[in-house]
Design a protein around this nucleic acid. Structure first.
Length: 734
DNA sequence: AAAAAAC
């Protein structure tokens, strides 16, 4: 299984290696784009590049990645009864106009298509058994999955339903909804630390598609800083701390073998009831780092007062049962899709427990969400606006919320979100800090936001795994100079080299196998309009693509994400909405068609690739509109041991002298910050930035060498030198 | 100036 990914990765790197990125040199203008077929390229170098990449790649794949093989969401062109003719070979028919495109099917059958449908038994990548109290996860589970073949009608019924996720809750394995109240009553009573009976259907639904091939046999080189009073010692294995039978069983079902670095530290900290501010690189397992210990605590402690409150609320409201839910834990996230993703993880780790997770977010039918809440809610994942709405409608009470998590905490506390967070946390019935336990997670955490964050924390432990805000070294970062007018054609060059199978042949006449559905490309743009326009352009060019941004309907957003995830649309054009937190396996390439204006956004965007020990590639288009990010970008590249174009260095040097406000993001500086920022921008526009000049001086402008004389490999112009060298040590130290 | 997040 793993060699598939290796080959693909190898192929990707080779395809990219043949791209003459010097086309990005502004000199040539838009007509300068060209694809160099393999037989014209420098063979020696390309071989080295490929081999080096493959060698590094192997280290990252010590476990067979549990890809989506079992789901068949996009592997053939027939998805949930909807035949997609957009993906048949190279001849892309121009589909219906965008509003109709990608609807996923007549009658909504295809919506959220990868959640249901028939499945094939998967081959357990790494059989693992955890025998305690009747859990024998891998063997029993997977053999019985196999026995379920042929029952697809049942799964289709459940999984294909629009908003099918709201229907999952029962224990009866699909038992009728009529007795759900009785079911919920029985769920709450009893010993919360003991697993409830197995449910093979649910078990398969939750775990068969899991992509959690997190694995890393040897690392521990990552510098970890954990500061605070009486910081608990970290663990080395999941067995080192008592998380109870239910959590351990679900860890095994998820095929987690060892904790990631952030999990090693965060789990015992959370278990010992400490507040936490945790910073760890993208793709390093933060979600499980809080879900596992929180759930294990809830299983150990039981529902406590929340149960009585919920029951009382139900009695007040008569025969309709619990009107108001009192979640024990609340997880807040900045985007709807991220909330949904966290909820999906929570479902896994609450399998066979009495904890019922729920998710609420805007853009979706609130009535359905309310009905789902009323079936019981112990762990709530939410976006802020919808949660406030639910609170004001009396559907949610935070009176007994003992665990509060801010995921992407720096985003949750920045200007756009802070008032809502204060409304939820400080101006309502949530237990005060010191009583509740508060945890914050992010890959970036600017100092200014850290200070703000202290308002919500008590005696907290600060945890930094790696340097705060740095990028994973297993992402190869490229920055290319591309004028605005050249961006589209340059993008086509990149895509033609990586995404769509083409007729390009190598010197032996064999077709090159280009990565297809297993190789996803995520293209970021700065505006919603720009996303629409670029998606449309790519679509007319024959690429199977879709887009996600805040002006699309929630249904379309989720469907776009599913089509991307499944490989049905291997190109996704996105705004910042997709920058943070989304865990999409097989994203091999992130392209910053437009660079963001702040470095945190850049770090999160490129973090959609190179996750859980895999390697990835990020290419950013840079021109003189991007002056404000120059220095921070340079710092990031240097820190991650990436090649730095010498023109970028020159520009950063110039820019440094133009701006005294460098490095201070506008949103952190209060009232005067924005003005300072504008001054900076004005300075750029006044010509001092001098993109072209700086770039052309690149040869002698740089202060860093590029490996001495060995520099002229592929990208000789602009000092865009070097092969695709990458660290031989991946994030996990392999 | 833009994006995100409630209706």
């Amino acid at each position: 299984m793993s060699h598939v990914a290796v080959e693909n990765a190898h192929g990707l790197e080779q395809q990219l290696a043949v791209l003459d990125l010097s086309a990005a040199d502004g000199q040539g203008g838009g007509t300068n784009r060209r694809y160099i077929p393999p037989h014209l390229r420098n063979k020696d170098v390309s071989k080295n590049v490929g081999n080096a990449f493959a060698a590094g790649r192997q280290g990252g794949y010590t476990i067979a990645p549990a890809t989506n093989y079992g789901w068949d969401g996009g592997r053939n062109n027939f998805v949930n009864g909807y035949h997609d003719n957009r993906m048949t070979g190279n001849t892309f028919n121009r589909g219906p106009p965008r509003m109709e495109r990608g609807r996923g099917g007549v009658g909504g059958g295809g919506y959220r298509g990868n959640r249901g449908g028939s499945f094939n038994p998967i081959n357990p990548a790494q059989p693992m058994s955890f025998d305690a109290g009747g859990w024998n996860t891998a063997k029993d589970a997977y053999s019985s999955f196999g026995n379920n073949r042929g029952k697809s009608a049942f799964f289709n019924d459940r999984g294909n339903a629009n908003r099918g996720r709201f229907e999952h809750g029962g224990f009866g394995g699909g038992g009728g909804g009529g007795n759900s109240r009785w079911v919920e009553e029985s769920r709450d009573d009893g010993d919360w630390s003991k697993p409830t009976p197995r449910n093979e259907r649910l078990e398969h639904e939750l775990f068969s598609g899991s992509n959690t091939g997190i694995n890393f046999e040897k690392y521990d080189d990552i510098p970890v800083e954990a500061t605070g009073q009486n910081c608990p010692h970290h663990i080395e294995s999941f067995q080192d701390v008592d998380m109870g039978e239910i959590v351990m069983g679900n860890i095994a079902l998820s095929r987690y073998t060892r904790p990631t670095p952030v999990q090693k530290y965060a789990i015992p900290i959370v278990k010992s009831k400490r507040d936490l501010m945790a910073c760890a690189q993208t793709g390093s397992g933060k979600t499980a780092a809080f879900l596992l210990p929180i759930l294990s605590q809830i299983y150990a402690d039981g529902p406590g007062e929340a149960l009585n409150a919920a029951k009382a609320s139900g009695q007040e409201n008569g025969k309709f049962g619990r009107r108001k839910q009192y979640p024990i834990s609340l997880v807040l996230a900045p985007t709807r899709e991220l909330a949904l993703q966290i909820y999906d993880e929570a479902r896994k780790f609450s399998y066979r427990s009495r904890v019922r997770p729920c998710v609420v977010y805007g853009g979706a039918d609130i009535g359905q969400q309310i009905r789902d809440l009323e079936r019981g809610c112990h762990l709530l994942v939410a976006t802020p606006g919808r949660l406030v709405d639910m609170m004001e409608r009396g559907k949610i009470g935070l009176d007994y919320c003992n665990y509060l998590v801010l995921d992407e905490a720096d985003r949750m506390l920045d200007m756009g979100f802070e008032p809502q967070i204060r409304r939820i946390v400080e101006q309502d019935t949530m237990p005060h800090k010191g009583i509740r336990q508060t945890m914050m997670f992010s890959a970036t955490f600017p100092k200014e936001i850290q200070i703000l964050a202290r308002d919500f924390l008590e005696e907290y432990i600060f945890l930094a795994v790696g340097r705060v805000g740095s990028t994973s070294e297993n992402i190869t970062q490229k920055v290319v100079w591309v004028e605005e007018s050249d961006k589209r054609s340059f993008l086509l060059d990149l895509l033609s080299a990586t995404v769509i199978p083409s007729e390009v042949q190598d010197s032996t006449g064999d077709n090159i196998e280009k990565p297809g559905k297993d190789s996803l490309t995520l293209v970021f743009v700065e505006t919603k309009k720009g996303a629409d326009a670029l998606e449309d352009f790519l679509y007319r060019e024959g690429y199977a693509c879709t887009s996600i941004h805040g002006d699309r309907s929630q249904r379309d957003r989720e469907e776009a994400l599913n089509q991307f995830r499944s490989g049905k649309c291997p190109i996704l054009v996105a705004t910042a909405v997709a920058a943070r937190g989304l865990d999409i396996s097989n994203v091999k390439h992130v392209i910053n068609f437009d660079l963001p204006s702040d470095i945190e956004e850049y770090v999160h965007r490129i973090g959609r690739t190179g996750r859980v020990g895999n390697l990835g590639l990020a290419t950013s288009f840079f021109n003189d509109k991007n002056g404000n990010i120059t220095k921070d970008l340079l710092d990031i590249l240097v820190e991650a041991k990436q090649e730095v174009p010498s023109w970028l260095e020159s520009l950063a040097y110039e820019h440094q002298h133009k701006s005294s406000n460098r490095g201070r993001s506008k949103r952190f500086s209060g009232g005067f910050g924005a003005r300072d920022y504008r001054q900076t921008a004005a300075g750029v526009n006044a010509g001092g930035f001098g993109g072209r000049g700086g770039r052309n001086q690149a040869g002698h402008g740089g202060t860093r060498g590029f490996g001495g004389g060995g520099f002229g490999n592929f990208y000789t112009s602009d000092g865009y030198g070097g092969n695709y060298s990458h660290s031989q040590v991946d994030w996990w130290g392999n």
